[in-house]
Amino acid sequence: MLRLEGVEIAQGSFRLTADLEVSPGARVAVMGPSGAGKSTLLGAIAGFLPLARGNILCQGQRIDTLPPAARPLSILFQDHNLFPHLSLFDNVALGLDPSLRLTQAQRQAVATALQETGLSGLEDRKPAQLSGGQIGRAGLARVLLRARPLILLDEPFAALGPALKRQMLALVGRIVGETGATLLMITHDPQDARLLCDQTLVVAEGRASPPAPTEALLADPPPELAAYLGA
């Protein structure tokens, strides 16, 4: 599904290498100490950072030469996932048509996505009038609508409380199940990884390791992960 071949990302004196493969439909937690390069890794896959070396392939096609929007993926950032001046409906609809000139069928599709994420009735609200959980759902509604085969989550729910975060993760699980998408999700919490991700990928000491089964990895963590987890 997703293959990183001899990838090296350079940012000033910081270097991150990755040589790994993610199988189709996998749900991968990305873990590692702060500043190790988890966001850098996702940013490079999404097309926000140039590669110093190597290729990224998705479903056999090279994607590292494509602009961000042309890559077969959706990404949610830590914040600023919604435009504050657009209504909830428009923010989600951007996922279908970036110029917001929607056909009737597309409007219907947006309405369906909103319904599935429990946002019906809030279409006209601006993000400032939404709760944190509703903002998280809106981002996910757009991911659902775009239906790209790869989903990258750069801790979009980090600011939510535990109960709300679990709800969001359940919604992510449902969307991934419905669309059959592959998931890469940065998290700090082993619980999140256990809850949703069958595999975990460790980013530490300048290297992103290939994904390994989550339970086994957490039960017997390699030294750099053990130091991070404090276990």
Partner: peptide, 14 residues
């Protein structure tokens, strides 16, 4: 918002 806009494929005009 530039990253979000790029990831959604907004044209320069949009």
């Amino acid at each position: 918002f530039a990253r979000l806009s790029a990831s959604l494929g907004l044209s320069a005009g949009a």
